[in-house]
Amino acid sequence: MSFTVFATAIISAMLINNVILMQFLGICPFLGVSKKSSSAVGMSAAVLFVMVIASAVTYTIYDLVLYPFDIPYISTIAFILVIASLVQFVEMVIKKFSKPLYKSLGIYLPLITTNCAILGVSEGNITGIWTETMPYWEGLFTAVSVSVGTGLGFGLIIFAFSSIREKLDGSNVPASWKGVPISLVVAGIMSLAFLGLAGII
């Protein structure tokens, strides 16, 4: 448990292995919610919030329940159920304790259950962290650092992309490229730029 682990995980998850541009997780909100930068910020805050809690909970379940009892093969079923109920639970808690936060995040929370970035990070954690050789707290710390980095990377890209898209709406695009096709090409160019960051760690 150290700062080096945390910093390495954040930089590699946020910039090098970016969740949208390199791993293709969460493409649906990337294309769906990125029309305005305000909704992009709300969505990425909700994703960061749920992602950190979900990866902590799913890693705990895997390390303390599924792995010792030798049933890791039901991880997919267990994780999706945990994430779906967790999202509902988080929604209720926010509604009860913080009205302004609920107002800004509320409409994005139900969409998150089907966001593949959350399940993808949870599944990636259990294949990337070696439960046999690591004590529980260390693994949990790594999982949470990776999820913080991934959430920040998601927010960075979706915000940058929504700004580009606002500008793109006013420009003169050929009829057959309007909408999703030109957005995908723009995302491809952004991805090319991020490819240049590979190898800095």
């Binding site: 541009l21 390199m22 293709f24 009829a175 057959s176 490229w177 309007k178 909408g179 999703v180 096709p181 030109i182 957005s183 995908l184 090409v185 995302a187 491809g188 160019i189 991805s191 090319l192 490819l195």
Partner: peptide
């Protein structure tokens, strides 16, 4: 590589939109 995926899908979808229009 990843960038090619975005660009290839963009090109194919543009073809579909062209046909549709």
């Amino acid at each position: 590589l990843p960038p090619g995926a975005f660009i290839a899908l963009g090109i194919i979808l543009a073809g579909f939109q062209f046909k549709k229009s």
